[in-house]
Amino acid sequence: MGAPAARGIYSPAQEQSGRFGGRGRTEPRPALPAGTPVVSRGLGWREMQRQSALRDPTKHRRATQYTRMLLTYLLEPKAGKEEVVMKLKKLESRVSTGRKWFRLGNVVHAVQATEQSIRATNPVPRLCLTLANLNRVIYFVCDTVLWVKSVGLASGINKDTWRRRAARHYCCFLLLSLVRDVYEISLQMGRVACDRARREESSSWDLPAYSVADEETEWLQSFLLLFRSLKHHAPLLLDTVKNFCDILIPLDQLGIYKPNTGIIGLGGLMSSVAGIITVAYPQMKLRTR
């Protein structure tokens, strides 16, 4: 006879032999009905990370870079953390350098996004996204010029000029993307308001009289309407959060708004997580109509 199994440890062989839990008989599990989906437990976030890393590895590198930036900001004022802070800064520099090797793929993706936006049927998103993606292409070109200068492949390049030029086009890209988001939000709020008015009209016979209190709560109603609109449109919420968090970076580089590194790190991390979600789950990406 083989060695007895350890108590309290479950294995498939024990279940088949009927020795699990001290029972002397086998208790087969009930069969699932045909067509029932099987859900894997505890692997949702890891599976999402694996899929997003395969489809777009720059998202994970970006999230790692801004996580290190945020941790550096939080640990730097504390005594005795100097060595940890130095290691985090070196790791952040290495990750930032590693991300730059994917710039060629970024340029190709931006050109493809420009071609797709030109074919949009709605004129407002078509204009905003086409101009935004053109600015994104120019931004990646400027970033490539900076990389050529940093590795010593070319001389005579003014690094500060090209850095500001890249930040300016990146800022234009994000501003135009936010304009598109605001337009989509206004359309979604209009749909939600029409649906609500239609339900109230069908469910009530007498309309309440207008009062001054309606004016006082108008801002609250507008906020609730915005909340309901984004609640029922997760891709639009993710895209808006991503663009809003990203715009802090070029605003800091251009000197328009100077947040601390903690805010930049937190914004970059939130934007990266939103990007990872849209890569892992393509249905969460805001579509161009």
Rank of each mutant, 00 (worst) to 15 (best):
R228W: 03
L174M: 04
T72V: 07
N122P: 00
L74A: 14
R7Y: 03
T278N: 07
S211N: 07
K159G: 05
T240L: 01
D181A: 11
A274F: 03
S202N: 08
K285N: 10
D181Q: 12
E27A: 10
V212T: 11
T144P: 00
Q221W: 03
S93N: 11
Q51K: 13
P33H: 10
L187P: 01
R99G: 11
L88H: 08
D239W: 02
T130G: 02
W219H: 09
T36V: 12
P77S: 06
V108L: 15
R289S: 12
P250Q: 11
R289V: 07
L134S: 11
I138R: 08
S203G: 08
L129S: 14
T161C: 06
L238E: 03
A6Q: 13
L153A: 15
P37N: 05
R50D: 09
D206C: 08
A31R: 15
Y139E: 07
H109T: 12
S186P: 00
A31V: 14
T278C: 08
A13N: 04
A132P: 03
V107F: 10
L238C: 08
C128W: 04
L104Q: 07
T130K: 01
L131Y: 11
C128Q: 01
V107L: 15
E47V: 07
R287D: 11
D143S: 14
V84D: 13
S271C: 10
R180A: 05
F102R: 03
A274W: 01
H109M: 07
P37L: 00
L230R: 01
W205H: 11
V145P: 10
W101F: 15
V111M: 13
D143W: 04
I277A: 15
G152D: 07
V279W: 01
T240E: 06
N133S: 11
F102T: 06
A31C: 04
E184Q: 13
F223N: 05
E216D: 09
Y210Q: 06
R119N: 07
R119L: 13
L237R: 08
L71F: 10
G8T: 06
G98N: 05
Q253M: 09
M48K: 09
P208Q: 02
L187A: 09
G275T: 06
T114L: 15
M86Q: 15
M69T: 14
C194L: 12
W219P: 00
A280N: 03
I247S: 04
K81Q: 14
L153S: 13
R163Q: 12
T58Q: 10
R23I: 02
L266W: 08
T64M: 12
P208M: 02
N122A: 13
W45L: 15
Q188H: 09
Y281F: 12
L207G: 05
S271G: 10
L146K: 03
H232N: 15
P37E: 10
N135T: 00
V141P: 02
G268W: 03
I247A: 11
V182I: 12
H60M: 05
Y73L: 00
